[in-house]
Design a protein around this nucleic acid. Sequence first.
DNA 1: GCGATGATTCGGCGCAAGCCGAAGCGTAGG
DNA 2: CCTACGCTTCGGCTTGCGCCGAATCATCGC
Lengths: 225, 225
Amino acid sequence: MTQDLDIARIAALVGEPARAAMLLALDDGRALPAGELAACAAVSAPTASGHLGAMRDAGLLEVVQQGRHRYYRLASAQVAALLESLMLVAAQNPARVATSRVDPLLQAGRTCYSHLAGRLGVALCDALIARDGLCIDDDIARFSPSGIHMLEDFGLDVHVLRRQPVSKTCIDWSERRHHLSSPVGAAIYRRCLQLGWVRHHLDSRAVSITKAGTKGFQSTFGLAM
Amino acid sequence: MTQDLDIARIAALVGEPARAAMLLALDDGRALPAGELAACAAVSAPTASGHLGAMRDAGLLEVVQQGRHRYYRLASAQVAALLESLMLVAAQNPARVATSRVDPLLQAGRTCYSHLAGRLGVALCDALIARDGLCIDDDIARFSPSGIHMLEDFGLDVHVLRRQPVSKTCIDWSERRHHLSSPVGAAIYRRCLQLGWVRHHLDSRAVSITKAGTKGFQSTFGLAM
DNA sequence: GCGATGATTCGGCGCAAGCCGAAGCGTAGG
DNA sequence: CCTACGCTTCGGCTTGCGCCGAATCATCGC
């Protein structure tokens, strides 16, 4: 066996609290400078630098130099998918012994590598299903004509959806429920930002809903927050 | 942050060559006794026992006792998905410096948690596409009427496909190409076994094609091995 | 230019964790 | 009942690696 070592090498990189914290901070696709990642992981700059270098060498991260800063970001969507896989497995195993404390970030929503996840992402998905705009079968979502109509009202360019009214879903690790993922999910997220319905907090991947968003989600999707 | 630790704990378990070897041996869904897993990982029985216990406690493995043997298997499809995620990331990163040696298992095919992967899985998928039976867009596969007809000839119960001619795909880590996954992929694999077209080697997850299979793949799917 | 700031490299410390041999426990089978 | 066998627990050894402080390099602003 030779691929054992390959996957063990990758998993070992992620299996270190400091490195895992950095990867999670990058999970939504942003690029962050080394110093900030050191702070996220609560380690010193030299330690962080070592970790980041190792992850870059292994192909998990990309680095882009800008002035005296070096911005790191996830190297590919596959790496993000790997993190989501890990979160899913971690969320459903019984290690939640004394961790009843709920992370405040989960209260509203969060982004998941360019699409909406968390409570908002799941609720949006549920609302579409409740109004017969969408049906999900075995992780695959199909839009109905009325669902496409809703997205049109929302301001999305849906001509691709007309050809193939299908999207992938992603199981949210915090809610254990489906939400829409790329590319439709990403388009919805971009449109939400554009309309000012949600705001992306710069220091994390939390997402909060604006007043306009509350009204908009209500009128367009029948979503009561 | 609290979920950092969760995913790090899971990843650290996988990130150990001996444990990774055991998980990979279980990747196709079989249940194996502790002793055999120790051999797979090339460690002593006590060492293996410690690893297996830790993975069971973490919810990665399930154990079923049968006589004086204890059979371990992956606890859920999510764990298998995690392994596939890791293989995908591991396969596409540039750590293939001196590992030009090709694993003989990949030559014919392999199973991937109850469906066909490897060269055979990818070739079958390609053949369906080439004959306009299938089109893949963004990891989602749709069957055309002629594709459904081919599967019918093959002996599959396709009434569910008529309602929703859609399936998921899985990117094979060795071929870097799509192949069909559950539930259609699993049905195809079961039917192949039933027809005696492929044989599952008991000591690994390799799959070999029988003479009947060569003929059958040729006549039904136009697949030249 | 010169200090300030971000990032990396180097060296040494300390702990966590993997490994095995020996011993213990339970089941199978004569 | 007693031996054989599969698996686990226990104790102790060793090594790998995560951590930091100090030093080095590069870039920005003045």
